[in-house]
């Protein structure tokens, strides 16, 4: 059974951090969080067909005054690298990247994807925080949002199965 505690805490932390515009592409492990995001009347939610377009949509929404996040799997993060570089980083656009960490320690499958995720984020100069404990959700998402806005850059939070309530 998928836990609801982590996803609902993530949603509350996003709202408390001032995030009001979200783009997303599903992963099985993100299903509950995306269900909550979609239902929430305080958030504009734009479901995507490919993650890279989400970086553009978030960039445009930021220019229109929104505080934005994209929710995606780490494979989708790799799909987004050009847009992150030549739009978000190039134009100083803050976006909170909430990335499900497939191929994390303890997982079966996606280990190649897991192994390149943090090095690619570092290569792009995008600061990244791994969320493993429920009690750290609120401070990490709030802190990442503040850091993104202040540095005018994307900041990544890697969501593990532990906080998504999906660890078996």
């Amino acid at each position: 059974m998928a836990g609801e505690t982590g996803p609902s805490m993530i949603l509350e932390a996003m709202k408390e951090a001032g995030i009001n515009f979200v783009t997303s592409l599903p992963d099985h492990n993100l299903a509950k969080l995306l269900e909550f995001v979609d239902k929430d009347p305080d958030l504009k939610h734009v479901p995507l067909c490919r993650e890279e377009e989400g970086i553009g949509i978030c960039a445009g929404a930021y220019m229109g005054g929104k505080t934005t996040a994209i929710i995606m799997q780490n494979g989708g993060f790799l799909n987004s690298c050009n847009a992150l570089t030549t739009t978000a980083l190039n134009f100083n656009i803050p976006i909170v990247l909430l990335i499900y960490y497939a191929g994390d320690i303890g997982d079966e499958g996606f280990s190649t994807l897991g192994s390149v995720t943090e090095p690619v984020l570092q290569g792009l100069g995008i600061r990244c925080y791994v969320l493993r404990k429920l009690e750290e959700i609120r401070a990490t998402i709030k802190g990442a949002t503040t850091l993104a806005i202040d540095s005018r850059r994307p900041v990544a939070v890697l969501l593990t199965k532990d906080v998504l309530g999906m660890r078996r």
Binding site: E53, A61, G64, T87
Partner: peptide, 21 residues
């Protein structure tokens, strides 16, 4: 006027801006 620097992303940036404003 904003000059986009990512090939293809113009329609997405414009969509985000239009949804925000």
């Amino acid at each position: 006027n904003l000059r986009c620097r990512t090939l293809g992303l113009v329609s997405s940036i414009a969509m985000g801006l239009a949804l925000a404003l």
